[in-house]
Amino acid sequence: MIDFIIERYNFWIYVILMMIGLYAMITKRNLVKKVIGMNIFQTSIILFFISLASKRGGTLPIMKQAHGLENFPVDPSAYINPVPHVLMLTAIVVMVATLGVALAILILIYRKYGTLEEDEILKRMQ
């Protein structure tokens, strides 16, 4: 039982983070809090992918041998999986871009209504 938990707690922690983010996104009435929730949500996905990359006993995905040793045999289990890291570099950029656009829209909303509380905005729309 303990082994089972130790083998997976990494994935569960990301799920908990994700729930926090999602809850903030759908429940909070302040628009900035929604955006923060969105960020937590996306960060949790990044953590999930990075946990997939890890290998016990593996090190950073940078070759120890320099050039000139092209034919040197390499053991794949000596390095952690580089693919999720690459994917997450892209996903981080996407996350930042989404954040930027969301904040730009928030600026527009603030200029129009003078508030970022959802209830107030809905009241002023009537």
Partner: peptide, 10 residues
Amino acid sequence: SFRYVVIGTI
């Protein structure tokens, strides 16, 4: 559009 951002990101 902001609502679309939040739901679309989910």
